[in-house]
Amino acid sequence: MSDTRILVIAEQEKGHLSSATARVMDAASRLGGPIDVLVAGSQASEAAQKAARLTGVSVVTSVEDSAFDHMLAENMGSLIVSLAEPYTHLLCASTTSGRNVMPRVAALLGVGQISDVIAVESADTFVRPIYAGSVLATVRSLDDKKVMTIRPTAFEPVGEQSAASVSSATSTGDQGLVTFVDEQLAGGERPELGGARVIISGGRGLGSAENFRLIEGVADRLGAAVGASRAAVDAGYVPNDLQVGQTGKMVAPELYIAAGISGAVQHLAGMKDSKVIVAINSDEEAPIFQVADYGLVADLFQALPELERKL
């Protein structure tokens, strides 16, 4: 087998490097071998400067071309394949972008993909969750080139180094297959669920969309992202992109606060890997207490404002 050489495909938007990149770097550093990073899109060179300072990066390749904005799979796929030749491992975060682009890359290269890796055992053996995380599979890749997506929350962000060199590569351009129309992004000031250090989620117990303000109040105190259970989404309290769970976002923040969430299996599947879980619920029998490090049996409408005041 050829010597290990790794390419990390970073996501960036308007010069902002995705926070998942530092975590993918942690996974990459466990493979053994030099690690290069690819950053593409408008203002890629700004994000490339940030990527160059991540510990362990050898060379950052920057491709500044709007064809790669929004990580369009057809355009990103062609670009990655054009650069893939010297690498034994191609890594991307298992975000919706990574899961969109990387299988396309794998198929164009004629290799399989290892999805959603949560642990690196060796350069060819990895652990990944299957059956919605109820089973962990250890798999060995039989391909010479390993195309992988990495679950960012399963790895720690690497630190900083003095900047590595940044080079540029030829754009493969727009493949002319897909056009971006528009996007509706939620959140605004608050951090995104996927990368948040602290998340506070509300459930059906809040009773209405208006009452979600109680969650937001605490979130703003903590600099936390806001999430929701499927029940809260189905009841129309919040838009569905806030849903944490098996069918929504899988999160693993340092602190997860579940308020008024009973703890259905489908919700637990999406947050049980959080470092510290707090449950606040008026029903002391709620299953959420069985996974919570700290449980507070209380009326949300008193506890949440008190929490906001005292934090």
């Binding site: 290799v111 399989g112 290892i114 053996t125 969750p129 299957i130 995380g133 109820s134 089973v135 962990l136 599979a137 250890t138 798999v139 060995r140 890749s141 039989l142 391909d143 049980k272 879980i277 707090v278 207490f289 069985q290 996974v291 919570a292 490090d293 700290y294 449980g295 507070l296 049996v297 209380a298 506890a303 008190e306 929490l307 005292k310």
Partner: peptide
């Protein structure tokens, strides 16, 4: 393209402590 080496069941999370007040939390 992959060989399955083994499967495991992830460690179950244990319930922690009950706190009595927001202050204690």
């Amino acid at each position: 393209r992959q060989a399955l080496i083994r499967v495991d069941v992830p460690r179950e999370r244990q319930a922690g402590v009950r706190v009595d007040s927001v202050d204690e939390l």
